[in-house]
Design a protein around this nucleic acid. Structure first.
Length: 428
RNA sequence: GGAGAGAUGGCUGAGUGGUUGAAAGCGGCGGUCUUGAAAACCGUUGAGCGUUUGCGCGUUCCGGGGGUUCGAAUCCCUCUCUCUCCGCCA
């Protein structure tokens, strides 16, 4: 959500920032609505003042037993009633219209992100590790199916397209990855582990900006719950409608949760394999910070996510998303793209975003500095650290051996009972 | 699923239609006293919005929304949440 006062102060800057995203100018329209709204507020407040004055006198007259005077005053004020109702209704409507107009507008991007229209204009920031080039490299689903531990037919039988069943070593590998990542972020980077709900109500989804605009990307239960598409939704909303002490910031939360996405509009993309599923597990990293710390926290968070890939020894690159490709609620986003030999390309495995006060305002989440009266909206950040399914994909393609077995990276072995390899299941 | 009770300021807790944004206590902050601290005493202490250069003025908010009334924390409707008992259940 945007700050209408900031738009009033500098409408040109607002429109210019929207334009970088390819969104048409809106400031003039919003300010006209705001002007009408404020006029309506003044009008209804004026009527309220008059009503309150007379009503007090009525109370006093009745208190003194002066019924005649009271009756006169009541007759006088009753004529105000309809006017007041009309004025209040007008105010309500104008306020709702302004909010609706703003709720669907994306966050303003930061000055230092690249210009561009789509993902082709994203800018590579750095690379880590040596990508292996091998024309004969297998894709993860070929490797997993050969192991007899990645079963898309079973997934289809249970649930349909874009679902998978993992078994044996691969099932355990996924669990090991989750534990490894959580331990890393909790023990080394100071995140607090959280186990949140995955079913949430409307306003929570609105708070992070997925509603009202992206309803079609989400699953919903028949009685009105939304299935969270990422733990960002719940972890960020942990502070909704709160006023935090400045000294308690930053807050850093991590959680391992299933994520549910309808993938509407992705028809035909990544139809084979585990890259794009309706349900996947992810370790999420969320930070709640003050207005000054957001940019530094984005760098820190990106490092936290990168460390996972480094410990797993998976080659990757960091990409800064351009203005046309960046997400709705973000001001600046780094994507981490892991090297997939089977696809001979880098694929997104993490996305770290700095949202400024955009979500804080939608959630009405604030903080207050020691001894100050003024409250400020919290700034929020989120990032994957990492998506388990895609990490498993990367491990298969980067760690597959000649015989089809998978070497387990050193850091995961304690989580795999000391095993060094995943080999074909019995009877596969 | 059935029956019932409740939601008031940072906390506890009064208040059932008329100068009530709300008693009282606790907590917090400031002050007096003290070498310092404690105790005691005095004062102060919610969140928004509109308007104003500013001091300020006005207005809304007693779980959310709507209604009745000249006037609502107080009456009505509705939603959400919490609690108790019964049933079911991982």
């Amino acid at each position: 959500m945007h700050d209408i006062n900031a738009i009033r102060e500098n409408p040109e800057a607002f429109d210019a920032a929207l334009k970088r995203r390819g969104v048409e100018a809106r400031a003039a329209d919003l300010l006209a609505r705001d002007d009408a709204r404020r006029k309506a507020i003044s009008e209804s407040q004026e009527l309220q003042t008059r009503r309150n004055e007379v009503s007090k006198k009525i109370g006093q007259a009745k208190g003194h037993g002066n019924e005649v005077a009271a009756q006169q005053l009541m007759a006088e004020v009753s004529s105000l009633k309809q006017d007041l109702q009309n004025a209040e209704e007008a105010e309500r409507v104008l306020k709702a219209e302004l909010e609706a107009a703003m709720a669907s507008l994306p966050n303003l991007v930061m000055d230092d992100i690249p210009d561009g229209a789509d993902e082709d204009d994203n800018v590579e920031i750095r690379r880590w590790g040596q990508p292996t080039q091998n024309p004969a490299a297998l894709q993860h689903f070929e490797i997993g199916e050969a192991l007899g531990q990645m079963d898309f037919e079973a997934g289809a039988r249970l649930s349909g397209a874009r679902f998978v069943v993992l078994r044996d070593g691969l099932a355990r590998l996924e669990r090991a990855l989750g534990n490894f990542m959580l331990d890393l972020h909790v023990n080394e980077f100071g995140y607090r582990e959280v186990s949140p709900p995955v079913l949430v109500r409307d306003e929570v989804v609105y708070g992070v900006g997925q509603l009202p605009k992206f309803e079609e990307d989400l699953f919903r239960t028949e009685n009105g719950y939304w299935l969270t598409s990422t733990a960002e939704v719940t972890l960020t909303n942990l502070v909704r409608e709160q006023i935090l002490d400045h000294v308690s910031l930053p807050l850093r939360f991590t959680a391992l949760t299933p994520c549910f996405r309808s993938e509407a509009g992705s028809a035909g993309r990544d139809t084979r394999g585990m890259i794009r599923q309706h349900q996947f597990s992810k370790v999420e990293l969320v930070s709640i910070v003050d207005a000054e710390s957001g940019e530094a926290e984005l760098e820190r968070k990106t490092q936290c996510a990168e460390t996972v890939l480094q410990r797993l020894n998976l080659p990757y690159r960091v990409v800064s998303l351009c203005a046309g490709d960046i997400g709705f609620g973000s001001r600046k986003t780094y994507d981490l793209e892991v090297w997939l030999p089977g696809q001979n390309s880098y694929r997104e495995i993490s996305s770290c975003s700095y949202c400024g006060p955009f979500q804080g305002r939608r959630m009405n989440a604030r903080y207050r500095a020691e001894g100050e009266k003024q409250t400020h909206f919290v700034h929020t950040l989120n990032g994957s650290g990492l998506a388990l399914g895609r990490t498993l994909v990367a491990l298969l393609e980067n760690y597959v051996n000649e015989d089809g077995s998978i070497t387990i990276p050193d850091v995961l072995r304690p989580y795999m009972g000391g095993d060094e390899k995943i080999e074909a299941a019995h009877g596969a």
